[in-house]
Amino acid sequence: MLNATTGTWLAAFLTLGLFSWMYKENPWFRLVEHIYVGAALGVLASQGYQSVMDIAWKPATQQGKTLLYVPLILGALLFSRWSKKYMWVSRSSMGFLVGTLSAVVMTGAIKAQLTAQVAATMMPLNSANNIIFFVITAAATMYFVFTLQAKWASPIMDLGKYGMMIAFGATFGNTVMSRISLFTGRLQFLLFQWLKLTPGGS
């Protein structure tokens, strides 16, 4: 029963059900949506269980990696959230997650987002293209100086915002063209894999 043919029909049912939302929210879409929520959470739960077993529980209990009891305990403390009285116990686990994240992004941002980008913008101003590039980058960076409200700065910030709008528009246009191929991919599945139509119409 669980063969490719049944699977393809089921996949087609789900695909069309999801597409049907484009017309309006309807019972078919709603069913597909709810099935998918169950499937996605089931996938996550299975993977989550397996990863806890593989990377923490087994190494801690069978290989003597006792340090791994720390994240296991921190993880288990999160369950205190199911009790209104003791939900504060989970805060240290959240603190650990946020602390590590903040440290990683804080240290990474200065090098990757700031100094490397600024160095890359230090380019020879010997061509129109380089000058335009440089002016837009500098002006748009000034747009993010929020406390500078001097009159002289306003045209620079405006120029920067126009520069960003050009960037947004171009990215928009480019993505529109590339998404067409995604859509045709799903159409190909429905026509050729499910309905078994032959490309070329023979």
Binding site: L114, A119, M122, A138, T141
Partner: peptide, 28 residues
Amino acid sequence: LNVVFVGLMIIGALLVTAGNTSLKTLIL
């Protein structure tokens, strides 16, 4: 610091235009 870096960007670009890449190298 953003203003400082825009300033550095300008100085660095002018230096690179003049053939001097010391600031560009230093900042990395």
